[in-house]
Amino acid sequence: MVNNRKVRLMTRLAIYEEGEGKEDIRLGKYFRRDFVRLQLFKNIIAVTVGYLLLVALYMAYKLEFLISEAVKLDYAAMGRRLLALYLIILVVYIAGSLVFSMLYYNASRKKLAKYFRMLRLMRSFYREESEK
């Protein structure tokens, strides 16, 4: 005999696993701290690469000036300004990725909790059947 409730539950589980559950199950393998650290690490690398490219673009833009004033330039001051700007951009992106990755992880965890509850209900169905 087909148990309709069990079939309905299994269908809902399958739909979740095929859809948004893929990302949630993948995140479920991480602790929150590890996931946030991973996102921070990725953002730091992306911001650093992007910033270096921007600096390269700016240097190519000001190439004529740099070549003509190469001897007179205060490289220390320039370096300090570039570093300060880099740190400001990095802090903004770190703060943003901290907040959003924590919120994203928490939301994913809530959906996973619901998924696990449905799995426990499935397990109780199997137990009932085995007892019969």
Binding site: A46, V47, V49, G50, L53, L54, A56, L57
Partner: peptide, 16 residues
């Protein structure tokens, strides 16, 4: 080359 660099910068800062 400029457009390529700009695309990479846009990806690093925003499109990700």
């Amino acid at each position: 080359l400029l457009v390529l660099v700009l695309f990479i910068v846009m990806y690093c800062f925003a499109a990700r």
